[in-house]
Structures are given as structure tokens and as C-alpha cells.
Design a protein around this nucleic acid. Structure first.
Lengths: 222, 222
DNA sequence: CTAGTTTTAGCCTGTGAGTCGAAAACCTGG
DNA sequence: CCAGGTTTTCGACTCACAGGCTAAAACTAG
């Protein structure tokens, strides 16, 4: 006998200054009505990545995934009480400027205040968050959370939301510039309501994941 | 229809100053006779980790795994020409002082000079090596490659073999001591053939994976 | 006792992260 | 048009730690 196999995704986006995860309410047993991760059955002829992309595009209409990577495969025989089922979890990231239309039964929920989740989905969400936090320190993965063009203050807000601790804008700018992760576009943004010096606008040099050879880190202050 | 599911392991050990991987020759199609990674079918009622442990203990008699972690799940529909089959790959590490008895059809082979491997096993081995190399820099994972007690020179040889570049014994000692990864046992080892100051003997403080909060790195010299 | 070998410890340097404060560039209100 | 408030940016300083080099320590063999 063979196990069923599903793909799941922790889809993260920074909204309203907080890191949020896309969740939907299950429409059938087990855990009917409980919040859970989007995903579904693996079909013949597709890879795991194709499968999770299909389910995300189908059910939740998220085509704007700027990054997608495999997290892990869960295999506890008791994780699904009705059936022997493996689940391969992915981490997906959505940039800040898009707001994908989501169905009724789907909602963004802050990772720091998750509701009760079905199956082992809570630990998967936290694993995704931790993976993101780690990679923010030694890769350019923030490109997948940021809009195409942004000011340092905006970028700082993203880092604060994702990392969960204060980040110095000055330091962030210097670190990312020196590493060659971001570059100045030359444009500037008109100042806000209360005036202030217009912000320079930056962009990520690469839209694909790159690993910084210098492993250095953005540490919490203090 | 559901896919078959197998578990595989990249089992690494430093032998004769080189990082080597445990391989065995396939006894059936496809790829009959080709070198491949040890592993086998996932059985009902077991987790993936239990499965790979069972196969390693059964077929290859490696019980001395000091570390085991999941690498990834491979899912290309064409990866097995005969059957739709997913494979979850693990990374296993064996300390230097043990020499597990292995059957006729099984052998250690240097990762830097791999033979032709069945399926997608070559990339899995390289992924395992890369994972190990990365973790050597920011975790205490070397505990799983080292004997219970060792001199700094011996530890240095392990790092050189695993990382593939020169490592300064002085620097290694200072870095690992400052991070609290290793500690002096108080014993010393009698000097070798040609004399020399007796080496202090060290041990790892923890035999479980710990992540260094300081992400700093052991870089190649120069 | 001397020469050779290996390990250990100390000193120096360089790099990059983190902090702080001042200057730059803009607004609004008088 | 000037003064005061706001936001961004730049430069100077400090600190921690990795990496390199050299000398000292501790031992063996002849």
C-alpha cells in the first residue's frame, strides 16, 4: 500500500506592518472548518513544485509568487487521522505591493497570532518563518517581499516585520549596498505629508536567490 | 494512482583524509549494477526518518549515525524510468573513529571522485556535501564527524577534508573555543613518532546540533 | 645537551556590523 | 522669506571577531 501525497505552502507577505500567512478554512473532514495551509493532492505526471503552484493558482489565485522553495516533507503516520498521508511543504513569498484576490474561505493571518491550525500546519508555518528569517541574513531573499522599487525606510519596515526586531535604516542601507544586494535607481520619491528630505529609490540587483559569501548577519540591536 | 516512495541517505564520513560517501551497487533494474545511494521503500506505519534508519541498519549495518537530517524530496516524474517514484533524501554523518562493517556490494567512495551514479543520486550527494559545508560554518555539526575526544590537529584534518580548503589550526581552535563549541578535557595525548609537544585533548560540549548565534564563518584563507 | 618537531599562546591587522550625531533636503506656518 | 519641524542620508567612531604571523612551550631522538 502507498501513502497519499499532498503539497502545502506557507505563503508569506508583509501586510499592515506584520508578517502574515495565507490560510484557508477546510471544507471537509478531517478538521472541517479549521484553518489550514493551502495545497492539495499530488497528481500523476507533475513534480511537487508544479503541484503546489497549480494548487495555489487554482484555489487561491496567487500567481504573484516571487519565491518558492521546498521546506520539508512531513511523514508522521498519525498526522492525518483518516488516512496515511505524506505532505511536502513549500515556502512561498509575495511582494508587498500586490494584493491577490482571495476567495471567501481564505484569509491572511498574522504569523505572530495564529489561530488553531489543522494537522501539523502550525509547526510548518513557524518553520517557514524561521527559514525566511535565517535567509534574510545571508541572502537577497528580501527581493521577494519588496516591491520593484522602494526607499530604505520602506525596506526597513519589511525587515522589521519579518525579523521581529528593530533594524537600523542606516545600517541596513550600508550593509545591503556594500554586499551589492541593492542599488540606487537614481529616482527619488516626493516627500510625505509632513515634508522631509525626499527618499532615494532603490531596487534589488537580482530577482533570483543569491547567497552572500560573507555570512554576516543583521543582528538585533543591543 | 499514487507514487512509490523511497528514502535515501547520503552517508558521509572522513576516511583517509577525504570526505567519502557510502554507496552500493544496485541489484536490480533500473540501473542494475550502477552505484547508488543506500535506502529503500517506505513502509506503512513508519516515518521517513524511521524508514531510512531501518534501511541503513538492515542493509548496510550503519548504526553509528551521529547525525541525520532531511535534505529534500525529489519528484521529477522521469527520475525513475520504470515507475513513478518519489524519493526523500537524508544526510547522515558517521564519526571518524568507527569503521562499520559493510557488505560486499557496498563501499566508501570519495565525494570528489564519484563514479557514475544511478537516478539523480549524484546531485543528491553533492547537495549533502554542500549542506554539510554550510553547517560546519555556523553550527557544531562537526561533532558528528569527530571522535569523542580529539586534538586540534585531528579536528583540523576533518575540517580540511570536509570543506575542501585549508584551515588554520590556530584559528580553528580560537573560533570554536570562543563560541563555546568545544572544550578542553584536561587530558593530553602522548606525542607521536617524531616528538613534539603533547596535544591537549578536546571534546564537543554538545552532541546535538546547535546553531551558533554568531553567523560568522570559516573562510578559505587568502 | 642540542637539534628537530609539534602544539600552544600572544600580538597585530583588517573587515564589516552597529551606533551616534550632524548635515542635507524638504515642508508648513508665521 | 525666514524659522522650526520632519525625514533621509552621510560620515566618524567603536567594537567584535576572523585570520595571519611569530615566538614560546613541551616533548623526542641522537
Amino acid at each position: 500500500m502507498r501513502p497519499a501525497h499532498v503539497t502545502l505552502a506557507v505563503v508569506l507577505q508583509v501586510r499592515e506592518g506584520r508578517l502574515q500567512s495565507l490560510l484557508w478554512q477546510r471544507a471537509r473532514e478531517p478538521f472541517l472548518g479549521a484553518w489550514s495551509l493551502p495545497g492539495g493532492q499530488l497528481e500523476q505526471g507533475e513534480t511537487l513544485e508544479q503541484s503546489i503552484r497549480r494548487h495555489l493558482a487554482d484555489k487561491v489565485d496567487v500567481r504573484e509568487l516571487a519565491h518558492l522553495e521546498q521546506l520539508a516533507t512531513l511523514s508522521d503516520p498519525g498526522r492525518n487521522p483518516l488516512e496515511w498521508e505524506l505532505a511536502t511543504a513549500y515556502l512561498g513569498l509575495v511582494p508587498r505591493d500586490v494584493d491577490p484576490a482571495v476567495p471567501e474561505d481564505t484569509a491572511w493571518q498574522p504569523v505572530s497570532q495564529l489561530p488553531e491550525l489543522a494537522f501539523d500546519h502550525r509547526e510548518i508555518v513557524l518553520a517557514g518563518r524561521d527559514r525566511l528569517r535565517a535567509k534574510l541574513s545571508y541572502t537577497n531573499i528580501a527581493y521577494a517581499l519588496a516591491p520593484p522599487v522602494f526607499s530604505i525606510s520602506e525596506l526597513r519596515e519589511l525587515y522589521v516585520a519579518a525579523l521581529g526586531h528593530a533594524v537600523s535604516a542606516t545600517n541596513l542601507q550600508r550593509v545591503l549596498l556594500r554586499r551589492g544586494v541593492i542599488e540606487l535607481t537614481g529616482e527619488r520619491r516626493g516627500p510625505g505629508r509632513a515634508g522631509g528630505r525626499p527618499a532615494g529609490l532603490y531596487r534589488f540587483r537580482s530577482q533570483r536567490l543569491e547567497i552572500t559569501d560573507q555570512f554576516a548577519v543583521l543582528r538585533p540591536p543591543g
